[in-house]
């Protein structure tokens, strides 16, 4: 099936296309290009509950069967290949802090991880409780779930003192 996505590397937003399939199944890759705009809005009862895994990540690994067209530069082609065969995302969140000037410390991944694993990484982050003081850039989880990315703090939190 012909798959088209908008490149997000630079403001040009080239439309990138190629033939894509999921080997091992006869079913073609589904999913039209977004942004979705629907004429009738989703109501509370009709809307599918957002499930635990992000929509575009689930499914079999995909294969690109034709040259990528539409790219204004090599980065666009590389982006299409990555996004179709192995879509990855970074993640930012926060963890509870004990004894700090602030109740939360923001954290992020150092490297993008497969999009389908984002909910699992969130579960690991939610388990964390850390103690102040905390320097920005501290590794809280090294190589989280073996996915090749650390979880680091992105704020410096000082220990709360009696004067406060």
């Amino acid at each position: 099936m012909r798959k088209t996505i908008t490149c997000i590397i630079c403001p040009n937003g080239c439309l990138l296309s190629a033939d894509v399939s999921e080997p091992g199944t006869d079913a073609p890759v589904t999913g039209a290009e977004n942004p979705r705009s629907i004429d009738s809005p989703v109501t509370g009862t009709g809307c599918p509950r957002v499930i635990d895994s992000p929509v575009t990540g689930a499914g079999c690994p995909r294969v690109i069967d034709s040259p990528v067209t539409g790219a204004g530069c090599p980065r666009g082609e590389a982006y299409f290949i990555q996004e179709i065969t192995d879509p990855r995302r970074t993640l930012t969140s926060s963890v509870l802090v004990k004894g700090g000037e602030l109740p939360l410390c923001s954290v992020r991944l150092t490297d993008p991880v497969p999009i389908a694993r984002i909910p699992d990484v969130m579960k690991e982050i939610r388990k964390m409780k850390v103690e102040a003081p905390l320097e920005s850039g501290t590794v809280l989880i090294r190589d989280v779930l073996g996915l090749g990315s650390d979880v680091i703090t992105t704020k410096t939190i000082r220990r709360i003192t009696a004067a406060q």
Binding site: P35, V50, P54, V55
Partner: peptide, 15 residues
């Protein structure tokens, strides 16, 4: 739109 809406199946209703 891609990373905050599409990734999570959140529809965008224009107009």
């Amino acid at each position: 739109i891609r990373q905050c809406l599409d990734d999570f199946g959140i529809p965008l209703c224009l107009s």
